[in-house]
Computed example of a mutant assay.
Amino acid sequence: MIVLIAPEEDVPNEIEILHQLFNAGLQYYHLRKPFKDLKQHKEYLNKIKPEYYNRVIIHHHHELINSYNLKGIHFQEQKRRDTIDNPTRYFKDLNMFGKTISSSFHDPEELNSCYFEFDYHLLSPVFNSISKKGYKGRGFNVNHINKTIVGMGGVTAENLSKFNTLGYKGIGVLGGVWNSKNPLEAFKQINEAYITSLKNRNND
Rank of each mutant, 00 (worst) to 15 (best):
L4A: 00
P7C: 03
N13R: 13
I15P: 05
I15G: 05
I15F: 02
I17Y: 09
I17G: 08
L18W: 04
N23C: 05
G25S: 05
G25N: 00
Y29E: 06
Y29T: 03
D37N: 15
L38H: 13
Q40F: 03
K49V: 06
K49A: 14
H61Q: 09
I65R: 08
K71E: 02
G72A: 06
E77T: 13
R81A: 12
I84G: 02
Y90V: 14
F97M: 11
G98H: 08
I101F: 04
F105D: 03
D107M: 04
E109K: 08
E110V: 11
L111I: 06
L111T: 04
N112T: 02
C114G: 02
E117D: 15
E117T: 12
F118W: 06
D119P: 09
L122H: 10
S124M: 01
P125V: 03
S129Y: 00
K132C: 10
H144N: 13
N146S: 14
N146F: 11
I149R: 05
G151E: 10
G153I: 01
N164R: 14
T165K: 11
Y168M: 11
Y168S: 10
G170Y: 02
V173E: 08
V173A: 09
N179F: 08
N179R: 13
N179Y: 05
S180R: 10
K181Y: 09
A186V: 00
F187T: 07
K188A: 08
L198K: 14
N203V: 10
